Amino acid sequence: MNYNHLHYFWVVATEGSMSRAAERLGVAVQTISSQVRALERSLGAALFRPEGRGLALTPAGQAAWRQADEMFRLGERLPELVREADGEPILRLAVGLVDGLPKLLVHALLTPILNEPRLRLQCLEDRPEALLAALALHRLDLVLTDRLPGPNPNLKVYAHRLGSSGLSWWGTPNWAERARDRFPHSLGELPVLLPSPHAAVRMQVDRWFASHGLRPQVVGEFQDSALLKTFGASGLGLFPAVDRVQDDLRQRYGVERIGALDDVQEEFFALSTERVVHHPLVKRLMQPATGPETAA
């Protein structure tokens, strides 16, 4: 196999079109096209199909891209790895964050490793399925999430429980004063901000309202927890947040605690492809875990 052809194919697949790949590589589109066709002849399969103004991978192309992507991403890291080997070793930790996971909580969960002088931390936020795919390809060392993944016969994932936290209602001083009067029934009369339905805790919050016979005045729903707190701190409405980060909420956002969402708990897990974790930083993160790992 001509690996130059494979590299051209990888760039086209990454960029989504031959014109963008040609611009990135500084060559003519015709050169890109001929290299990709040569690779297709070598493999005996079509790797691309037209889609809109660009190209999409065929099933054969997807299989080829997964292998090529791992190869060339490792190749891109080679100079850096050589430089590191020639100096003081660096402890890398690549962490995937399920979108919607509270950012203040992520910082709290990662605190045990942040004083490591040789640390190089990489954080990627994405959808759960995208993070699991990256974990399977060993681009991530672990994934932090608030829910257990569904069964997947093609991927063995172990969930290590990191703990849980209750939730409370928060708001600016003016809203907090009004909300404390007749709490929790006041939550049915005042504007509230909620995590979007994709968040694992949202269903519990909805049940909390139902258990108290309340119909909330929802003025905003946010996929990003930091945005939810930012708009809450601006006075748009009351919002729920995990109790584990109370001090940070007060200091960073200037908000006040109103009352607890009784019986609502948000759980947190670290997902890995190993039952017994060997990465030294991941092992350090697992030390405060309050429960055993679960195969998912």
Rank of each mutant, 00 (worst) to 15 (best):
A199N: 11
D206N: 05
D224H: 09
A210G: 07
Q204S: 13
F222A: 02
L227R: 15
Q223Y: 14
Q223P: 04
G235H: 03
L214V: 11
F209A: 09
G213K: 03
W208C: 00
F222Q: 09
L236A: 13
S211N: 06
V201E: 00
S211H: 08
D206F: 01
T230I: 06
T230K: 14
D206L: 07
F222Y: 15
F231V: 14
V218K: 02
G213Q: 11
R215H: 05
L214F: 08
Q204V: 00
A226M: 11
R215G: 09
L228N: 00
A226F: 11
M203S: 15
S211D: 07
V201W: 01
E221R: 15
Q217N: 08
V218Y: 03
F222S: 06
F231R: 14
S234E: 10
S225L: 10
L228Y: 06
L238V: 13
G237Q: 06
L236Y: 05
M203A: 12
Q204N: 00
R207S: 04
A226K: 06
L228E: 10
W208N: 05
R207G: 04
A200G: 03
Q217C: 05
F231I: 01
E221N: 03
S211E: 11
L228G: 08
W208A: 02
E221P: 00
G213N: 09
L236P: 07
K229Y: 15
P216W: 11
H212M: 04
K229L: 15
G232E: 02
D224A: 13
T230Y: 06
R215M: 09
A200I: 10
V218Q: 03
F231W: 14
R202S: 03
L236K: 09
A210K: 09
M203F: 12
R215K: 12
S211W: 04
G237S: 04
W208R: 03
M203I: 11
R202G: 02
Q217R: 15
H212D: 04
F209D: 00
D224V: 12
V219K: 11
W208E: 05
R202P: 00
A200V: 06
S234T: 13
A199H: 15
V218N: 00
W208Q: 04
F231C: 14
G220K: 07
E221Y: 06
D224N: 12
V201F: 01
P216M: 10
R215C: 07
E221G: 02
G235D: 02
S225Y: 15
A200E: 15
M203L: 08
S234A: 13
P216F: 07
D224S: 07
L228S: 11
Q204L: 10
F209K: 04
L236F: 05
G213F: 13
G235Y: 00
P216R: 03
L227Y: 15
S211K: 02
R202V: 02
A226T: 07
K229T: 10
M203T: 14
L227V: 11
G220M: 11
S234R: 15
L238E: 13
F209E: 02
E221M: 12
L228A: 04
Q223F: 14
A210I: 08
V205I: 15
A226V: 06
G235C: 03
S234D: 06
L227K: 14
L236C: 10
G232M: 08
T230L: 06
G237V: 02
A226D: 13
A233Q: 01
D206M: 02
F231D: 12
A199V: 03
A226I: 05
Q204Y: 01
R202Y: 03
R207K: 07
R202C: 01
R215N: 12
G220A: 12
